Deep mutational scan, measured.
Amino acid sequence: QKPVSAYALFFRDTQAAIKGQNPNATFGEVSKIVASMWDSLGEEQKQVYKRKTEAAKKEYLKALAAYR
């Protein structure tokens, strides 16, 4: 399975908490809140997710090379 983006990892980590705080929110509303949070996130915090994405990408490429 291809690795997901840094934003997708952040979304996955954040979505449940947002939904818990806003139980009646639609998926679209939750998405807007998470997107706003991502935009206001500091670069250092974004780097945490970007590093996770890079590590997953390297593992994916290694597994793909081994498969071929």
Rank of each mutant, 00 (worst) to 15 (best):
Y7C: 02
A55Y: 06
V30A: 00
Y7K: 11
Q45W: 02
T26N: 13
A16Q: 09
T26W: 01
G28Q: 08
A63V: 07
K58P: 09
L61N: 10
G42D: 13
A56W: 03
Y60F: 13
P23I: 03
Q47C: 07
Y7P: 03
Q21K: 13
K50A: 08
M37F: 04
D39W: 07
A66H: 14
A55H: 12
G42I: 00
P3L: 08
T53L: 10
K57F: 06
A35G: 09
N24E: 12
V34S: 02
W38A: 00
Q1L: 09
S31F: 02
K46T: 04
I18R: 01
I18E: 01
P23E: 02
T53A: 14
A56R: 07
K19T: 06
K2M: 05
K32T: 11
S31T: 09
Q21P: 01
D39V: 06
K62V: 03
A25M: 07
Y7D: 02
A65Q: 12
A17L: 10
F10S: 06
A66M: 09
R68I: 02
L61I: 11
F27S: 15
Q47H: 06
N22H: 13
K52T: 04
Y67A: 15
Q1A: 03
K32D: 10
L61H: 14
G28D: 14
D13G: 01
K19N: 02
A55C: 06
A65K: 13
L64K: 15
A63I: 04
L9K: 04
M37S: 06
K19H: 07
K19A: 11
M37L: 07
A16W: 05
K2H: 12
Q21T: 12
T53Q: 12
K57N: 13
N22Q: 07
Y60I: 02
E43N: 04
L41Y: 00
G28H: 11
K46N: 01
N22I: 03
K2W: 01
T14S: 14
E43P: 13
F11K: 07
K52P: 05
K46Q: 10
A16V: 05
F11V: 08
T53S: 14
V4G: 12
E43H: 06
A8T: 07
V34P: 01
V34M: 03
N22L: 06
A25D: 01
F10H: 14
A8F: 05
A6L: 04
Q15H: 10
L9F: 05
G42K: 11
S5Q: 03
K2S: 13
E29T: 03
T14K: 13
Y67D: 15
F27N: 15
R68W: 05
A65D: 13
V4S: 09
W38G: 01
M37G: 03
Q1H: 14
Q47Y: 13
T14R: 11
Y7N: 12
K2D: 05
K58H: 06
N22R: 11
A16L: 07
V4E: 15
A35Y: 07
N24Q: 04
S31L: 02
E44L: 02
A35F: 04
K2G: 04
A17V: 12
V48A: 11
Q47P: 01
M37C: 07
N22V: 08
K2V: 07
A17Q: 12
K52W: 02
I18H: 00
S5M: 04
E29Q: 02
Y67H: 15
Q15V: 08
V34A: 12
F10V: 00
V30W: 05
V30I: 12
Q21I: 04
Y67P: 15
